[in-house]
Simulated scan of single mutants.
Amino acid sequence: MRLTIWAGLWVILLDQASKYYVVHWLGLGNPGRGKIEVFPPYLEFHMAWNRGVNFGLFSGLDMRWVLIGLAFVISAAVLWWLRKHGGSKWVYLSAGLLIGGAMGNVIDRIFYGAVADFLNMSCCGINNPYSFNIADIAIFIGAVGLAFFGDDGKSTPNKNSA
């Protein structure tokens, strides 16, 4: 469980530090500033305040507290599942990434009222209109890790029971 806690704490720290740097030091949180080319056309800092869920869905609705509550419920469910089933170090690491990313975005929703998304990647003539952040990357990797490493064979039906 220590690996989960440490992974989650590091994700929160890196996520919040990167957002503080981009929003406050680089000034992308200021109206009109919005975009910095870092490694064009592959990487830009393109500020987007996400009040909704993935890709800004439901951003017109005031779902701030619902999404904060949902992040806590999902994180608690993952911790409960981890305590009950355990797993390899990859399962604990994946859970930490997922929970840390969720809590990083919760911090944004509490302090900014929206999630600070700023990473934008485009390539090969395809213009990506969506931005994301380190917490989103951690959530994605954590969820994929739990999907791949979370089944240790315990959920496979017993062949002798048929």
Rank of each mutant, 00 (worst) to 15 (best):
W80R: 11
M63R: 08
N54F: 14
L119G: 10
A116Q: 05
N50C: 07
L93Q: 04
L97G: 14
F118E: 10
F72C: 12
V115G: 10
G52E: 14
L93V: 06
N127V: 15
G101I: 06
L98H: 03
L98A: 02
G69M: 02
D62E: 14
S59R: 15
I68K: 00
L67R: 03
L93E: 03
V66T: 05
S122V: 07
L70D: 00
V73P: 00
W81R: 15
A116K: 09
G101K: 12
G101T: 02
R83G: 12
Y112M: 07
W81H: 13
W49D: 00
M103S: 08
R83T: 04
V78G: 06
I107S: 12
L98R: 09
G60A: 06
L119D: 10
V78M: 12
G96M: 09
F72M: 11
M63H: 04
F72S: 03
G56R: 06
L82D: 07
W49S: 00
G100R: 07
K89I: 10
W90E: 14
D117S: 15
F72G: 03
M63A: 12
V106L: 10
C124A: 12
R64C: 00
A71E: 04
A71F: 04
S88Q: 06
S59Y: 11
F55M: 15
L57E: 07
L79R: 01
C124T: 13
W49E: 01
L98T: 01
L67P: 06
F55H: 09
R83N: 13
V106A: 10
C123M: 15
V66S: 02
S75Q: 04
I68F: 01
W49Y: 01
V73Q: 00
I68A: 00
L61D: 05
G56W: 01
G60C: 06
L79A: 02
A76I: 11
M103C: 11
V115I: 10
V66Y: 11
L70S: 05
V106H: 10
L82V: 11
S94N: 06
A77F: 11
F111K: 05
N105Q: 12
D117I: 15
F55V: 13
W80Q: 03
K89A: 12
D108M: 07
I110F: 05
A95T: 03
L61N: 04
K84T: 02
R64D: 00
L67T: 08
A95E: 07
N120F: 07
N50A: 08
